[in-house]
Design a binder for these strands. Structure first.
Length: 209
DNA sequence: CTCCAGGAGTGTA
DNA sequence: TACACTCATGGA
């Protein structure tokens, strides 16, 4: 297993896995991406899909509907995603933000300012903020998650323990300022992690390195 | 049965 | 800044 540069690993991953078409979104509505970013916190994506189905079946796959819904109904709908008491609260907070700032997030080019605003929302940490801004609003940010830290250590010769913003800067400065690459790269890292998981530690891609 | 999954918030040293 | 602890479900 060899150490690659950040751009070289991207080329390898893309050649092996191809385009990932992220963010996974059935409805095609921006809000589903935002809600998914909250629901997926420390939770398997299969469970997020159940929670999204629950929201849809309850007529709650909508920011305004969530703000108007009874607390018990919201909790029940997202229950399969776990941590449903706090995630219900977080969803409301993000829904409020979404209704107030959706237009601004789409229009503004001041990505750092938008990020600060999002980070002020309860339940939105760095990874969630960057996921929302990149995948729902096409802002140029790189998402760092647990997978990224492992890959950084294992395939890039970096310290996966370094602070979030610092590791993010490594990727942002090593890559062209291209939203599509940021989008694809993170999705490819997840694809690699899932393959490695299924095949017990080292799948076809790892062996091909 | 145990372990963990596309984290975040809070409290402590 | 660096850890430990909590939140909770469902699949491997």
């Amino acid at each position: 297993m060899s150490v690659h540069s950040i751009p070289a690993l991207y080329q390898r991953l893309f050649a092996h896995f191809g385009p990932q078409h992220w963010w996974p979104c059935r409805s095609g509505q921006r809000w589903e991406i935002v809600a998914g970013a909250i629901l997926t916190q420390n939770c398997a994506w299969t469970n997020v899909e159940k929670a999204l189905d629950g929201l849809e079946n309850a007529g709650l796959l909508d920011a305004t509907a969530i703000l108007a819904a009874p607390e018990a109904a919201l909790r029940q709908a997202i229950r399969p995603a776990g941590f449903y008491v706090q995630k219900a609260r977080y969803l409301r907070a993000v829904a409020q933000f979404f209704r107030e700032h959706e237009a601004e997030c789409l229009r503004s080019h001041d990505t750092p300012a938008l990020r600060e605003q999002l980070l002020a929302v309860p339940g939105v940490g760095r990874e969630t903020a960057d996921s929302i801004l990149l995948y729902a609003f096409r802002q140029p940010l790189f998402v760092i998650d647990a997978y990224t830290r492992r890959i950084a250590t294992r395939h890039l010769g970096l310290d996966g323990q370094m602070p979030y913003d610092e590791l993010q800067r490594q990727f942002l400065t090593a890559l062209p300022r291209d939203i599509q690459i940021y989008n694809e790269y993170h999705a490819l890292i997840v694809a690699l992690a899932k393959e490695s998981c299924r095949k017990g530690g080292c799948g076809a891609f790892c062996q091909a390195l």
